[in-house]
Write a protein that binds this DNA or RNA. Sequence first.
DNA 1: GTGTCAAGAATGAACGCTCGTTTTACAATG
DNA 2: CATTGTAAAACGAGCGTTCATTCTTGACAC
Lengths: 196, 196
Amino acid sequence: MSEAHLAARRQQILDAARACFLRNGFHQTSMQDVIREARLSVGAVYRYFPSKNDLITALAEQVVGEVVAVFTALGAQDPPPPLAEVMQRAVDVITPETGPDGRFRLALHVWSESLRDPALAEFVAGIYGRLRTIVIALARRARDHGELPPDSDPEAVGVVLLGMMPGYALQRILTGGPEPDVFKAGLRTLLARPAG
Amino acid sequence: MSEAHLAARRQQILDAARACFLRNGFHQTSMQDVIREARLSVGAVYRYFPSKNDLITALAEQVVGEVVAVFTALGAQDPPPPLAEVMQRAVDVITPETGPDGRFRLALHVWSESLRDPALAEFVAGIYGRLRTIVIALARRARDHGELPPDSDPEAVGVVLLGMMPGYALQRILTGGPEPDVFKAGLRTLLARPAG
DNA sequence: GTGTCAAGAATGAACGCTCGTTTTACAATG
DNA sequence: CATTGTAAAACGAGCGTTCATTCTTGACAC
């Protein structure tokens, strides 16, 4: 069998699992649910993922990995745009991911599960660390370009900026709001002022 | 039987459930776990909470309700302190609640569960809405006192500020950092600058 | 005080069910 | 012929919940 076929089957299972987990969370989704959604047999699924936990871990890592990839690209733009602009672009990236099938919804389940699963916790912490260095680098550049006061600490500003992103996603997911434009206006107010 | 006894028993069960749910999440905690932790019998627990879901809901509402009470008090200070000061006080309030027994840890499970349980989702959304009005009022006062540009939109600034709080808690829970002082320094940089 | 007794509180064995997983026998594919 | 997939049954374990039973409490008669 072609290697591509195997990868495709694997992805087919992961896609089915994602749909199920989005609906009901990890532990309220049964293997039967996933198997039915994937339109496969019991044995086929267990051939690719030896246990439910492996399925959860693989999917969580894939989804969270996709998120970090997008933000890495955002932070690596050359030449680097102004800070306020990068953050507004981030909002645009996040917004659709807070929708019914969005990846940030699954992230809620991943965060919850990572409190139970040390391996998943370590993975999530690693991802967060990478995002942290990206946004701190952004803050440093912004300071050097006069967008932030010269005596400001890039790490301090960076962690605040980083906190805004899941904060925005959470609000969207849990309440449906705010509108992206409103949030972006708030960002501009706080970020686009000339350094004191 | 005294009414105080009934309330105490109820709280005893809720405390046990909180400990279990913190350890293993809602659906990986069995009723037996809660019952063992509460040092009660099956029937006793079921007398106070007719189903596991009632237990989850009651606990979630209690915990989240405590959180909103604290923040309401923070926003109602008279005379209102500067914006940067209120936010830094909020950080101080949040920080211990991100520890091993902190309420924000349970909040992760509540957020996840609220994607499944519409009743819980509505409750959480309501809480978020109340916090939103508080922080928007803060932003309006800050603007009127010259802490923010006169043309800034309180709602826009408010939702950004609101997003920072769970964002900070999430970082603390998932990665152990940042230190409160670092985050507070970042807040000062972004908030304590004179209006442009 | 002391004894009585119904109502309330608490017990824990037991029930029906679903779970994740394994096994079996067999068909299709490359 | 080895790999991949199917279909179905079965496994033990553990789940949430029920209920017949036992214990406890406090008001009241004496």
